[in-house]
């Protein structure tokens, strides 16, 4: 969908920022919740947020892929993981480990640094003409120029599948 013009544009910008804020919130929950299930939900919120952002960036296929794969598959996996490992809600288990403070400082500094650098960086905004990528071009790309990574990815997934199965299998006594 091409860029709307005028007042509509300001609303879109506001929506965009709102979704961004929601994504961030979800991220924070995913990271901080003592109860892992809630953390998983936080992650879900964040994933949704990202999907919406893709839409804003006219990457529709990606948004759908995000929803299907990430939310549908990976999240489910994580939830199963949470379920299978006891103590998900045990309040006595401290949420952060010893180096939480240090980690927080480091990440805070990183964040500030990155954001400052990004905002001040002289992006080539508008150097190239903005253009949207027709889906059909993406498909041809995947099976054309990026055929090799595509095949490798399938191989990787197969390997991971077998590996995961083997590791998680219950040992025969």
């Amino acid at each position: 969908m091409s860029d709307p013009v005028g007042p509509l544009e300001w609303a879109a910008k506001a929506a965009f920022y709102c979704v961004a804020a929601l994504t961030l919130l979800g991220g924070w929950f995913a990271v901080s919740q003592r109860n892992l299930f809630r953390a998983a939900l936080g992650l879900a919120l964040a994933l949704f947020g990202v999907a919406v952002l893709y839409l804003f960036l006219q990457a529709e296929f990606l948004a759908v892929a995000q929803l299907l794969v990430y939310v549908g598959a990976i999240l489910m996996l994580i939830i199963f993981g949470v379920m299978l490992t006891a103590g998900i809600a045990d309040p006595a288990v401290p949420r952060w480990n010893r180096q939480a403070v240090g980690a927080a400082l480091a990440c805070g500094a990183l964040a500030v640094g990155l954001v400052a650098a990004v905002l001040r960086a002289p992006w080539l905004a508008g150097a190239g003409k903005e253009f949207t990528l027709p889906l059909e071009a993406l498909g041809r790309g995947l099976l054309g120029r990026y055929l090799l990574p595509f095949e490798l990815l399938s191989l990787l997934l197969l390997g991971a599948l077998i590996g995961a199965l083997h590791i998680a299998r219950k040992e025969k006594e």
Binding site: N97, G102, A103, A106, L110
Partner: peptide, 13 residues
């Protein structure tokens, strides 16, 4: 593991 990660991050920064 996480301790190593922290060292890596700090070093990287």
């Amino acid at each position: 593991v996480q301790h190593y990660l922290l060292i890596a991050v700090v070093g990287g920064m």
